[in-house]
Simulated scan of single mutants.
Amino acid sequence: MDLTDILYEKNDGIAKITINRPAVYNAFRAQTIQQLIWAFRDAWDDLRIGAVILTGAGEKAFCVGGDQKEKGNEGGYDYSGGLGGGIGLEIESLHQVIRNIPKPVIAAVNGFAIGGGHVLHVICDLTIAADTAKFGQSGPKVGSYDAGFGSAYLARIVGEKKAREIWYLCEQYTAEECREMGLVNKVVPANELQQAAQEWAEKILQKSPTAIQMLKYSFNADSANIQGISQLAMGSLAMFYNTPESNEGKEAFLEKRPVNFNKFRG
């Protein structure tokens, strides 16, 4: 595959996948998602690989979710690519491959992890964050949502009250705040982030691969029912993207003006 949106390397049993769109804070488009899926599946099939690191290019962002400039007026996204979930993004397939790959996935969050980018780190097995990283949701601000793993699984991690706060208020949280709520495993200085992720991956490589695989399957089993919820959520999101309400969020973002959702109440 021609990798235009990501970087992919494999060294000494560790696969490293980097979202490489720093000019747009590593926001993803259809090609980005397709290439991420390809890389995770390649790491899955390579028996030499025992751990995967997911990170973002540059210092500003891990990933800020879907590229709003690519979202079309008729719902979905305008660029070429698979129509996964009917929204032009195979995001559900990406979520599933990150959860199901029988190898731990470490998110190395180097900056903003917002919106769909925040969901990606939530789904990863482990998260190490730079002390400069910021986390949060943005969907309801721009006419979007993730009512599958992005919300239901988040609640498993941080609790119902905190998960509702994160989604309803769309505020941003520091890496240390996220560590305190159990959303981040470890916080390190920004210049030590990649080395810290590498060290954890190397520690995993020293363990029994079968034991790690079975443990991951066991951890996933308790929340496996969310996959069905996710399918319903993505279907509803495809329909929502065709509404003026969703389009208001996109247009306000692109026009850099306050969003006005009040006209859709009453």
Rank of each mutant, 00 (worst) to 15 (best):
Y168H: 15
A23I: 05
E59G: 04
I53V: 12
A196M: 11
G150A: 06
V24I: 15
K69A: 12
P102T: 08
D2L: 10
P22A: 01
A238M: 09
E199G: 00
E180N: 11
V52F: 07
S144L: 08
V122C: 11
Y168K: 13
G139N: 11
Q198M: 14
V188R: 13
N20K: 09
D78Y: 08
V158P: 02
E165W: 08
Y8T: 02
G117S: 02
G72H: 14
Y241G: 10
A201L: 06
A197R: 11
K207H: 09
I166K: 05
M1Q: 12
V64I: 15
Y173N: 02
G111I: 01
I37P: 00
K16R: 15
K141E: 13
A175S: 10
G50E: 04
F62K: 03
G50F: 10
K134V: 01
D5C: 01
L7S: 14
G136F: 13
N220F: 09
F28D: 04
G58R: 03
Q198E: 15
W167K: 12
K134L: 13
L47H: 09
T4V: 11
F240L: 06
W44I: 00
M1L: 12
E255Y: 05
E160M: 06
F253M: 10
E255L: 12
E74C: 07
G75C: 05
E248W: 02
S236M: 15
W167P: 00
G66D: 03
E192T: 04
I128E: 09
E92M: 07
Q231I: 11
G111E: 04
R29I: 05
A39S: 07
K60Y: 04
G136I: 08
L254V: 08
G235K: 14
G13Q: 09
V142G: 06
S230V: 00
H121W: 11
A108P: 00
T127P: 03
G75A: 10
Y153M: 07
Q172L: 12
L94H: 00
P102I: 04
V142A: 06
L36E: 02
C124D: 01
Q35F: 05
G13E: 07
E192W: 07
G82N: 10
N110W: 06
G50I: 08
I212C: 12
G143K: 06
I114A: 00
A190N: 13
L89N: 08
H121M: 14
I33V: 14
E245R: 12
Y173F: 12
Y168T: 12
L83K: 09
R265F: 05
L254D: 10
F219I: 09
Y217K: 14
A23H: 15
G58K: 05
S218C: 06
K71L: 11
R164W: 02
E74I: 10
S223N: 12
T132K: 13
K186T: 08
E176M: 14
I53Y: 05
G84F: 01
